[in-house]
Simulated assay, not measured.
Amino acid sequence: MTTASTPRSGAPRAVLADDERLMREQLRARLTEAWPELEIVAEARNGTEAVELVEQHRPDVVFLDIRMPGMTGVDAARQIAQMDVGDDGVLPEIVFITAYDQYAVEAFEQGAADYVLKPAERERLKVTVERIRKRLADRQGEAGDAGEGAGQAAPPLQQLLHRLSGQLGGLGVAGVQAKPAYLQWIQATVGQAIQMIPVDEVLFFISDEKYTRVQTATVEALIRKPIKELVDEIDPQRFWQIHRSTLVAVNAIAGVTRDFRGRQIVAVKGHTQKLEVSRSYAHLFKGM
């Protein structure tokens, strides 16, 4: 693990993660050509180091090799997506480094993240750099983009991570892609009883330090599973993560407004609960 102890500046910052040293060196050299102002603050040899370095340096961009020993780049991205970035922070942009895989490349076209094919070709890297530059620039005007109503949102990062995870380990019989098995029922505590709650009936999940509250239109229950585990077990097309501690059913979103502090607030159909959207997930309601 290598790291540069340079002070925080106005230049964009990046962390590189690849278990192959030559690949890291090549990517660093070509990024220097394509994006001279980018400050590469650290390099990791595996997913675990990548997560630690992102936690330490809070970069604007993370370049993650998809296939690394131990923790894959997808697993690392999942942990990064669950980091507590603070009231003023946002999650870094994710760029995956991958050998050519048609299915993976198609997944990236959703736009939740970008990719660089091995070896990093100069022209394709320029495209990635321009996309990331635009996203970072767009963040500056993001605060004024929320309005009322839940319009069509960009596909969240968690959907891409679920799909890529399936590409890495979800091949079924005869090489056919296996469909992810998402939770259908929640076994929860309601008063002194254990109750089976259909996931279809859940409006939202909210976690505190010990428990996660499961809320339906008629039932409020508790489970011991944290949000960071639920996001891997719940269908990301049906539930959006809008805060590190909150998942909300997409079809239960009645609208999105701003409070007096400028925070996005989700109203839930058939319930009085108001759910705060953290800045890291503000893109879900952009352009409404």
Score class of each variant (00 low, 15 high):
residue 120 A to S: 11
residue 198 P to Y: 05
residue 62 V to W: 13
residue 263 R to A: 10
residue 194 I to M: 08
residue 62 V to G: 11
residue 11 A to K: 00
residue 231 V to E: 09
residue 195 Q to T: 13
residue 106 E to Q: 15
residue 202 V to P: 14
residue 39 E to T: 11
residue 246 T to N: 04
residue 44 A to F: 06
residue 113 A to R: 02
residue 75 D to I: 08
residue 37 E to K: 04
residue 12 P to K: 09
residue 59 P to K: 13
residue 183 L to T: 12
residue 230 L to K: 01
residue 211 Y to L: 04
residue 87 D to F: 10
residue 16 L to K: 08
residue 243 H to D: 04
residue 272 T to R: 09
residue 15 V to M: 00
residue 27 L to A: 00
residue 163 R to D: 09
residue 10 G to V: 03
residue 159 Q to F: 06
residue 66 I to L: 05
residue 259 D to C: 13
residue 116 V to M: 12
residue 21 R to S: 07
residue 116 V to S: 10
residue 55 E to S: 13
residue 232 D to P: 01
residue 45 R to F: 09
residue 273 Q to D: 14
residue 239 F to G: 00
residue 232 D to H: 06
residue 15 V to C: 06
residue 220 E to L: 02
residue 226 P to I: 08
residue 144 G to M: 03
residue 49 E to K: 02
residue 93 E to H: 11
residue 236 P to Y: 02
residue 260 F to P: 09
residue 213 R to V: 08
residue 85 V to N: 03
residue 185 W to R: 12
residue 102 Q to M: 06
residue 38 L to H: 02
residue 275 L to D: 05
residue 229 E to I: 07
residue 283 H to Y: 13
residue 243 H to I: 05
residue 43 E to N: 02
residue 83 M to I: 04
residue 92 P to G: 07
residue 281 Y to G: 11
residue 103 Y to L: 12
residue 53 L to D: 06
residue 9 S to L: 00
residue 101 D to N: 12
residue 215 Q to P: 08
residue 111 G to D: 08
residue 250 V to F: 00
residue 192 Q to W: 01
residue 186 I to D: 00
residue 146 A to T: 10
residue 52 E to S: 11
residue 56 Q to A: 15
residue 62 V to M: 12
residue 177 Q to W: 15
residue 171 L to P: 02
residue 200 D to I: 09
residue 100 Y to P: 07
residue 281 Y to P: 11
residue 271 H to V: 00
residue 83 M to R: 01
residue 130 E to G: 15
residue 154 A to V: 13
residue 239 F to K: 03
residue 177 Q to S: 15
residue 99 A to K: 05
residue 225 K to S: 13
residue 169 G to Q: 05
residue 101 D to V: 03
residue 87 D to H: 13
residue 175 G to W: 03
